[in-house]
Nucleic acid binder design. Structure first.
Length: 261
DNA sequence: ATGAAGATTGCCT
DNA sequence: GGCAATCTTCATG
């Protein structure tokens, strides 16, 4: 069931936790990839110093100032895309929720192909899978170790890392600039957001605490890192102990470009 | 016109 | 843990 637009017509701080467990799917000629969201981050817009909308509307962030239920896709670091869901707290607030991580629940092969085919990586797609079984059948509930450390296997090939991080999530889904402004609330859109109800059973989660199937996943909240203002508001939301949640990495300001005389 | 920084990631020691 | 890759956007002259 598609998520109604009213869902997004709320402050981003309210929408964000409700997005956990929802499924973002992108349909292309190559196929369909669906990701269940496990980590999101809210941005308040005009009043948020860390938001792209803080300094007002520009060509890049124009979508954030538009109606809710649309995707705000931006390009960063010269190579990565990130996607937000536009919300609506106050009029023109330009609030949004950044989709930071998720679990692939459909189209995993396509997602892996997109992730493998990196800018520098030229490894052919014809890679012999390690007992690749269809996602729908055969629960792998009895594998304590999530992934066998195959020599040469990078993190990017692991299923749990396919959408672990905002840029990886976009790459796995095939989201790029052309989807900026896409409406995720209409069935005719290639990019759609589905409600949690009707989700396939979650892929096996490594034993960590009490993540048995059937156990409701707990949502953890915390302040965003690196932003001092409004620290009392929980901006980040994720599923506790979920392996697909991105690990925080402190942002390192790069050294200034060296001038050669 | 020019420069600096960025809602990141992959690979290095 | 550190640094490079890579280019768009925004602010300033």
């Amino acid at each position: 069931m598609l998520i109604p637009r009213e869902f997004f017509a709320r402050p981003s701080g309210e929408v964000a936790p409700d997005l956990l467990g929802c499924v973002l799917e992108h349909e292309t000629p190559d196929g369909l990839v669906a990701v269940e969201l496990t980590e999101v981050e809210a941005y308040a817009g005009r009043s948020d110093p860390a938001s792209h909308a803080y300094r007002g509307q520009t060509r890049r962030n124009a979508v954030m100032f538009g109606p809710p239920g649309h995707a705000y896709v931006y390009f960063t670091y010269g190579m990565h895309f990130c996607v937000n869901m536009v919300c609506l707290g106050e009029e023109g607030s330009a609030a949004a929720v950044l989709l930071r991580a998720g679990a692939i629940i459909a189209g995993e092969d396509l997602a892996r192909a997109r992730r493998t085919r990196g800018p520098v990586s030229e490894s052919p797609v014809s890679e012999s899978p390690v007992s690749e079984s269809p996602v729908s059948e055969s629960p792998v509930s009895e594998s304590p170790v999530s992934e066998s450390p195959v020599s040469g296997s990078r993190a990017r090939n692991g299923s749990r890392d396919l959408a672990r991080g905002p840029a990886r999530l976009c790459q796995a889904l095939g989201i790029d600039r052309s989807l900026d402004g896409a409406d995720v609330c209409v069935a005719s859109s290639p990019l759609r957001m589905r409600a949690e109800a009707g989700n396939p059973v979650r892929s096996p989660v490594p034993a960590q605490g009490d993540d048995r199937p059937g156990t409701p996943r707990r949502i953890v909240t915390g302040p965003r890192v690196g932003v001092s203002s409004a620290a009392e508001i929980p901006w980040r939301f994720w599923y506790e102990g979920d392996p697909t949640v991105s690990a925080y990495r402190a942002h390192v300001p790069r050294r200034p470009k060296l001038v050669t005389p």
